[in-house]
């Protein structure tokens, strides 16, 4: 049972880590790194470390992503892809 939880979270984590490196949009990469942190906190819980899981979810997925997003705004990389109608 716990093995399957670990398997799913490792797959999600590594997939999101690949997405961080290969996404063009920096905001999307920030969201992906937040997903990496969340999957990592699930894995910490499976590994019997609830304290570390709480810290990773609060600090890694929360504050760290906010700091990154605010910095992206400062350096002019805050771009939302606009939806182009394909006629």
């Amino acid at each position: 049972m716990l093995f399957w939880v670990a398997l799913i979270s490792v797959v999600v984590m590594l997939g999101a880590a690949f997405a961080v490196l290969f996404l063009e949009n920096y905001l999307a990469a920030t969201a992906a790194i937040s997903v990496v942190s969340l999957a990592l906190s699930v894995l910490f819980f499976v590994l019997q470390a609830p304290d570390v899981a709480l810290t990773e979810a609060a600090v890694g997925a929360g504050i760290s992503s906010v700091i990154l997003a605010l910095t992206l705004r400062r350096v002019g990389l805050w771009r939302i892809e606009t939806h182009k109608d394909k006629q």
Partner: peptide
């Protein structure tokens, strides 16, 4: 941000 809602062409 200027995103328009999706409409069917």
């Amino acid at each position: 941000a200027g995103l328009r809602p999706f409409t069917i062409p």
